[in-house]
Nucleic acid binder design. Structure first.
Lengths: 149, 149
DNA sequence: ATAGATGCAAATATTTTGCCGCCTG
DNA sequence: CAGGCGGCAAAATATTTGCATCTAT
């Protein structure tokens, strides 16, 4: 990832190295704000704007994936080689990775039959993670707790 | 859809009826702004706030699906009975529906093996629609035109 | 008659941009 | 030493909310 940045004429500043480290070490799909807060622990003067700017660079290089939601801020994922599905807990908003195989297979299928040229995809499953199942007695979600996309 | 609204103690104002009509007649997955503009053709005084408010009601009733993106405004889809995949053109931003079967099958599979309780899902394939393929000679997308999620 | 809706404007929240001084390469 | 970068603050965008007025039931 460092090589890719250097290769496209970008500079490796401490802030950028710190952000790269955060992205590569975590699998929690953090938001820009979360990244900023963690980054400040090591580089207290880092600004949120820099985080956004660097994320944009990485996004354009294809090194991170940006996921937008309707009512949350964007979340970022160090781009594993290929797009992969996510499991998203509608209660604690945890996001974990799932197996990529079936998804890619589906994409190939669609590409073959739809007349579209498929370049990428996004696949998310909303539900309750094992930790949150049974935390509150109710099996029903109120309308406001509907998964939101 | 009208019945569902009335059934939950909501009033059927002209603005709401107009919005319901738009949502049920179109399959273009419009944004709030687009809905507002079209609505003004028939009810010139309709405000954007009302559109948002009504969309929120419908969302909570499960009658429309809201799709969030990282750099576009949200798009709305009159909820066909079940979630279904979308094909999204990264050039003209057209969104069309795809076959739901394989997606639901995948969801069932995951629910069975992951330990999560899956409630819903979102599945999108980014690429070039038939109209946009070959419109410009390039087969390569520049980084800025990467599909964005 | 009255609870709930509308419309306007102000408030929020997130992300982007402009500018200037600083530092990497 | 030059051009990119970081930080700050202002701008831009999308959505939500407060409130006074109006209206569907």
């Amino acid at each position: 990832m460092v090589e890719k940045l250097r290769g496209s004429g970008c500079r490796l500043t401490p802030q950028r190295l710190g952000l790269l480290r955060l992205l590569s070490e975590t699998d929690s799909h953090p938001s820009a704000r979360q990244l900023h807060e963690e980054l400040r622990l090591h580089f207290p003067t880092t600004s949120l704007a820099t985080v956004y700017k660097t994320l944009k660079v990485l996004k354009d290089l294809g090194e991170v994936t940006e996921m937008g939601f309707s009512d949350d801020d964007n979340r970022y994922d160090a781009a594993r080689p290929h797009p992969h599905p996510h499991l998203i807990c509608v209660q604690c908003r945890k996001i974990i990775d799932a197996d990529a195989e079936p998804a890619s297979e589906l994409a190939r299928q669609l590409a073959a039959t739809s007349g579209w040229r498929i370049l990428s995809h996004r696949m998310e499953f909303y539900g309750l993670c094992p930790d949150c199942q049974g935390k509150d007695g109710s099996n029903l979600l109120s309308p406001e707790d509907q998964p939101n996309t």
